[in-house]
Design a protein around this nucleic acid. Structure first.
Ligand SMILES: [Mn+2]
Ligand SMILES: [Mn+2]
Ligand SMILES: [Zn+2]
Ligand SMILES: [Zn+2]
Lengths: 143, 143
DNA sequence: AATGTCAATGAATGTCACTTTCATGATGGC
DNA sequence: GCCATCATGAAAGTGACATTCATTGACATT
């Protein structure tokens, strides 16, 4: 799926008349081969060891591009940093966030999604998106 | 319930050895008689007309005290400002947020809450809190 | 009522995570 | 290869908090 996302991004870029650069290639590769839910700072630091010449602003702008292209999603978990996670076409999930170690787990629940639709319908709301986050202690941190 | 919350706050303050001041009284009164989901800035501006001598920092610190005392809750709706809403003992609700006009509606759904518990249990997570927000167009903005 | 002590206030400043600017460098259509 | 555009990154700007510190105020005590 790494290849598929690279294609999606390449198509988006050419369709927008934007250019392919070494930096963007490196950042995309690093993003796709990293854990999910990375902050700009984290990705920047991860890149820095191998590519000290890539600036923070470029990482920042490139992650925005990923989001625009639909291969990444911006997330806020309340830790003061914007995080980016991988997105696959048509896929959706919500999150369990550990308040002690920061571990993030993903889940899907079709019934919850349906109930949300019902709530929105009953109020005349047209849903664009939603966020459901459960905060607490992960299995490890409970021990 | 305005009186009840004032009592809760007064008890919290005396139990913590903190002092009662004109500013805190005024801010509490203004907060309790305002719409829900106000930002610090909004409350500060609302106060400013009648009480131009109350500083931003005092509003900021006093809202934090309300949250500590359990009569207010900090919320992030992604508009870049922290919002505070009234909290009543034992009460919980989630939100529908209009992305066009900013209107915020509240809802409760016992079934969704139960399903969340199930999800957390199945992963060994111990829930501390959760947030569920549905973003979209409100009935008014759909017209 | 005056005093003493410690918390409260608010103008100013600091912090932090973006966000934008601008001079310089790279890309790619012709 | 030329050159109009786009991209880059160091530096500066922004905005919403968060903290500092000199001064003021609350209130228990005298
Ligand atoms: Mn995720
Ligand atoms: Mn609410
Ligand atoms: Zn954990
Ligand atoms: Zn609306």
């Amino acid at each position: 799926m790494k290849r598929a996302k690279k294609k999606v991004f390449a198509d988006f870029m050419s369709q927008k008349g934007l250019k392919s650069t070494k930096q963007r290639d490196i950042i995309l590769d690093c993003f796709l081969s990293s854990d999910r839910h990375l902050s700009i700072e984290e990705l920047y630091l991860k890149l820095r060891s191998k590519h000290p010449n890539i600036g923070y602003a470029t990482v920042y702008r490139t992650l925005k591009l990923f989001a625009e292209a639909g291969i990444a999603r911006e997330m806020q978990f309340g830790d003061g940093q914007t995080r980016y996670e991988h997105v696959s076409e048509g896929e959706h999930h919500d999150h369990l966030v550990c308040t002690r170690c920061g571990h993030i787990e993903e889940f899907e629940n079709e019934t919850i999604e349906k109930l949300q639709d019902e709530v929105a319908n009953s109020r005349g709301f047209l849903i664009e998106r939603h966020r459901l986050e459960i905060y607490g202690l992960c299995a490890n941190c409970r021990k």
